[in-house]
Design a protein around this nucleic acid. Structure first.
Length: 767
DNA sequence: CAGTGAGCGAGCTTCCGCTTGACTT
């Protein structure tokens, strides 16, 4: 009975701590929260001071049973959940559920998992801070009220199974508003004026000095007259300035910055990063990966200094501590760093190695010296005008942290001036080799990537490290947004080149609007957002979370009662919920685009039951309107009249072939020919469903039959033995079955196949 | 998987933050 029981949130943490504390202590984990609001009704007794109805979720019952048993065997229980709002609540729920008497219970906290920190924590226990717990309850209840009162309105007024919430709805709003910025964006044309000057020095030979003119030009006419001026001018260097500067490293990783850098440097999605980091954490290679803190333990700072001096030399080491500056940070953990800085490389999968290396480098860099740079700018005057050219270069004099880590920049458009500056002197005369006026367009606002959305959410203080990845999944799962690529469109760029006094005009095609893995809003997402902006503008205000956080802080400080805070919020909120339910119209996003040239009937687009549709004519007793689904990527908001009419040209009938009609259409997987109930895909970039001929369709059918024949190993009536991408398999009545390992697919008889099918369909539970 | 576009209105959907497995394909 003389055992000390320590309860922490994470099992990996429990394992480490147990080692530090010795055999008088048993350390177990609660696996996060052990109780939550009931899902029945709303889980809150609103009329009774917002009393929460807590239940233990099914997947937590086993843990709780175990904790109960351990607690009853212990003489002292140490609640060591994190030192933030959620952690305090976990401790409180544990005390409640495990029925721990006050004299048997101690609350301890530590911010880093080091022997010293834990030993110190044990010497200074405290009680549970009920004000902090109440702040968490207020947070939890408010989120439930918002989510569970608004979502059902969407089911009635927009579509079933949709959702709204304090965090997800703001994330969605960011994406929708950015798309609108792009839609209304008008590119501004201008000319970029660059020159290559020749430097001829006796000892080093010919070199090129690249420079850009100070002038802003928007019209081709002006670009041409400027080049004419250039042709007549003489050039000389009239000023050289050299400025020293320093660059300092970025702070160590938090969840959000890790997600951003893993995305841009390694191409990991946000959820992928978290999954890989989780494995590194569980195998003891890195510290906890869900954190908003940039704090490093003293131990980490010291070991980093040793590792850096050993690897790069004394002059590269510069120990630093960082202060967290993000909004609403709760600082329960350290920054994300390697557990052991002396391990630069680890064993593991490719992904684990890459992510670990990234974390190691970032951590090392933040404990390294500043880089010293020298910025040189050279001004080149023209003899016949005030306009001048400027050549700029930056030379790294001492690399410092840049030796291991360079943070990726957001604006991937501008490529920094990497030009080396040849030896030049003030007053030197120059000759140009070429001067180019190149047309360019201003860049449209950038669509969010998963990673840049996380960055924005963190700036606004919405979401927490543990929820960034899930929220991004939610808005995709609801069909509000999709991660997509866009091929971009070619655009003709005008170029004027001056060489040897002669101006030549040429052109070049550039790709504009190319997008890779960006978040695009979908029609239903836009409708939901607009509905929420219209009826719940205060909830999806970008400052809503920041404002209520101030209230939560007051509760945490004991300066405000949590039920009265909720009442102040709920009364006007619920009135708005009721009035929206009775008054708001159904939201379909309907737009009338024009009149059908054939019948004169109105043409609409709107959100239908199965997605966005175009419609010709109105429904009446004797007439049905015609419908056609919008194509993937077409928005109700931007689709043009002509594009809508195009949709009605499909499906299109072709000639008969082998006694069956051929039909061309566009389905979920793109354009197809349907023949005798079988589907044949059109070739991407080759065939066009609006113009494809019967001859070409027959060709496609025959090609597909040929390639299917090659896949076929054997056939018994309905049962097919086929060669697939992942090896041989059996196909029967549109279902596929794995062939057991070590079986020769050629030798399978009909009976064998039936056995396999029977065996595998018996256990096939469908979700 | 390649359509549908309506309804008598059953019964369901949904939030945010803590934390990891338990299941198959």
């Amino acid at each position: 009975m003389s055992v000390n029981l320590v309860i922490v949130e994470s099992p990996a943490k429990a394992k480490t701590i147990e080692k530090f504390l010795g055999k008088d202590f048993k350390v177990v984990s609660s696996f996060g929260h052990i109780r939550d609001l009931s899902k029945k009704n709303i889980g809150i007794d609103i009329k009774n001071g917002f009393k929460p109805e807590y239940i233990i979720p099914d997947d937590k019952k086993k843990v709780v049973r175990k904790l109960c048993k351990e607690a009853s065997n212990a003489s002292l229980v140490w609640l060591a959940s994190d030192e933030d709002r959620e952690g305090e609540a976990i401790a409180w729920h544990l005390a409640q559920v495990l029925d721990l008497p006050a004299e048997k219970t101690k609350r301890i906290v530590f911010h880093e998992i080091t022997k010293g920190a834990i030993e110190k924590a044990v010497t200074s226990p405290r009680g549970i801070n009920i004000s902090l717990v109440n702040a968490q309850q207020a947070r939890r209840v408010l989120d439930r009220l918002v989510g569970y009162e608004i979502s059902p309105i969407l089911w009635k007024k927009v579509q079933p199974a949709l959702s709204a919430g304090r965090v997800q709805s703001v994330a969605l709003r960011l994406i929708v508003e950015r798309e609108r910025d792009i839609i209304s964006f008008k590119p501004v044309l201008s000319y970029r004026l660059t020159a290559d000057f020749i430097i001829d020095s006796a000892d080093k030979g010919k070199a090129i000095l690249k420079a850009e003119a100070s002038k802003k030009i928007t019209r081709e006419k002006d670009a041409r007259s400027f080049l004419e001026l250039c042709a007549a001018a003489s050039y000389s260097i009239d000023d050289i300035t050299v400025k020293p500067g320093t660059r300092s490293p970025a702070p160590p990783f938090t969840t959000s910055t890790l997600q951003q850098e893993a995305y841009s440097k390694l191409g990991f999605s946000v959820s992928q990063t978290m999954a890989v980091a989780q494995r590194l954490y569980e195998s003891g290679k890195i510290t906890y990966m869900r954190t908003d803190s940039t704090n490093l333990s003293q131990l980490a700072v010291n070991t980093a200094a040793i590792a850096i001096k050993e690897e790069y030399g004394e002059e590269y080491s510069r120990p630093r501590q960082y202060k967290t500056k993000s909004k609403g940070a709760q600082e329960a953990h350290e920054a994300i760093r390697p557990t052991y800085m002396n391990k630069k490389i680890i064993q593991g999968t490719q992904q684990e190695k890459k992510l670990y290396e990234l974390i190691w480098k970032r951590t090392a860099a933040c404990q390294m010296s500043n880089a010293k740079v020298e910025k040189t700018s050279i001004r080149i005057a023209m003899s016949n005008t005030d306009t001048h050219f400027l050549a700029q270069a930056e030379v790294v004099k001492f690399d410092g942290f840049l030796k291991v880590y360079r943070e990726s920049s957001d604006n991937n458009g501008e490529n920094g001036t990497k030009t080396l500056i040849p030896p030049v002197k003030k007053g030197m005369d120059l000759k140009y080799e070429s001067i180019i006026a190149r047309e360019r367009t201003s860049l449209q606002p950038a669509r969010y990537t998963e990673a840049s959305l996380v960055k924005k959410m963190e700036e606004l203080g919405i979401g927490r490290p543990s929820t960034y990845a899930p929220v991004i999944s939610t808005i995709q799962n609801r069909g509000y947004v999709a991660r997509e690529d866009r091929p971009g469109e070619p655009r003709r760029i005008n170029i004027l080149t001056l060489t040897a006094g002669i101006i030549k005009q040429t052109g070049q095609t550039e790709k504009t609007g190319y997008e890779k893995s960006k978040l695009f809003p979908k029609n239903i997402g836009i409708l939901v957002n607009d509905f929420l902006v219209e009826h719940f503008s205060n909830i999806i205000d970008y400052n809503f979370t920041a404002n209520i956080e101030v209230q939560f802080d007051k509760i945490a400080e004991g300066k405000k009662e949590w039920d009265s805070m909720l009442e102040e919020f709920y009364d006007p909120f619920h009135r708005r919920v009721s009035s929206t339910l009775t008054e708001a119209n159904r939201k379909t996003g309907i737009r009338e685009l024009g009149a059908d040239p054939e019948t004169g009937e109105p043409v609409y687009v709107k959100m239908g039951r199965f997605g966005p549709v175009a419609q010709i004519g109105d429904a009446s007793d004797d007439k049905k309107p015609r419908f056609a689904s919008l194509l993937k990527g077409q928005l109700l908001e931007t689709i043009q009249f002509k594009e809508a009419l195009e949709l009605f040209k499909l499906p299109r009938k072709l000639d008969e072939y082998e006694g069956h009609e051929m039909l061309v259409g566009i389905g979920r997987f793109g354009p197809f020919v349907k023949h005798n109930n079988k589907f044949y895909s059109l070739k991407k970039g080759v065939d066009d469903p609006y113009n494809i001929t019967s001859e070409r369709a027959i060709e496609l059918i025959q090609e597909k039959r040929e390639s299917d024949k090659k896949k076929e190993i054997n056939r018994f009536g309905d049962i097919l033995v086929l060669k697939g991408r992942y090896g041989p398999y059996i196909s029967y009545k549109k279902k596929n079955y794995k062939i057991p390992k070590g079986t020769d697919p050629e030798s399978l008889s009909e009976e064998d196949c039936l056995k396999i099918i029977e065996k595998n369909s018996g256990s096939g539970k469908k979700k």
